[in-house]
Amino acid sequence: MPDDRELSNTHAGAQLLSDRVPGSAAFDELVVSRQSESLASDDILVKKPLGFLFWFALSWVGLVVILALIANLLPLPNPNYQNYSAINAPPSIHHLLGTDDLGRDLLSRLIFGARVSLVVGFVSVVVGLLIGGTLGLISGYKGGRLDSALNAGSFVLLAFPAIVAVIAIVAFWGHSLFKITVILTVAVIPLLYRVVRASSLSFANRDFVVAARTMGATSGRIVFREILPNVIPAAVSFGLITAAGVIVVEGSLAFLGLSVALPTPSWGNLIANGATNGNLQINPYIMLWPVLAMFLLLLSINLIGDRVRQRFDVREGLL
């Protein structure tokens, strides 16, 4: 029974427990950097190689992005063109991935559908980081009344189940690609704000910041020259994982028919079409391709985010 021995007794993370405040601070935890003092602390300096999986993930995301960008230039049939002579066709030379129940080319719909996921996922996170991240950076460093107000506000916003709020707003406002993107951007701002604020706060009183302050650096300079570079790893790794989350929410909305209006393809509504209307029995390809593409995309984004986190030693916490 080799059971006892691997419970090692080094002191790494000894202080993690003591400064942990549950619940409210759940988001703050995840960016507090780990300070290992284990016997084998030297090993941590040896960087793990990124590995085959990382490069595979990056290639897949790259491929999807490029195909979505140049979709119009590709020799693809119109994604909405209904070829009634080729309904539910299996994969062939003419239709590499086959056709759906209305004779539309599945490859074309898949590639054009990627645009929705990518636009919604990345635009909302980039804009969210610009707005929420900037607020978080300043509020974490400055503290004071602004910080208290923003912090309380973000708590209230995060107290809502985002999906319900999004569905309700979509119900009244409508669901074009632009509106969906705006709604999801607003939804991720408080989340990204909290992450960046927590990270900024953890650096605000570090020695190098104090040193810069004593040398008379302006607040603006300190925030953007000293703190920002240190916050970026956490922001990027959490931003990627948030992007995956946003893509899931958009996919869910599309699945429910609440995202971009049909017949515009989106991976969510492609999956929904494949899974309903009896298509699952007749032509499983309709569902299979978008399911595979979505699975690989989410896996890749999560993996890249996780590697960034490992590389820069951001604590796992709620990521």
């Binding site: 995956a244 899931v248 899974a275 699952l280 499983p284 569902m287 989410l298 896996l299 999560n302 996780d306």
Partner: peptide, 18 residues
């Protein structure tokens, strides 16, 4: 479990049904 993170309900549910 990393793979499972990439399987939101709208992706895995159709597979389970199929």
């Amino acid at each position: 479990t990393f793979g499972m993170l990439a399987l939101p309900p709208f992706v895995i549910a159709p597979i389970l049904v199929a």
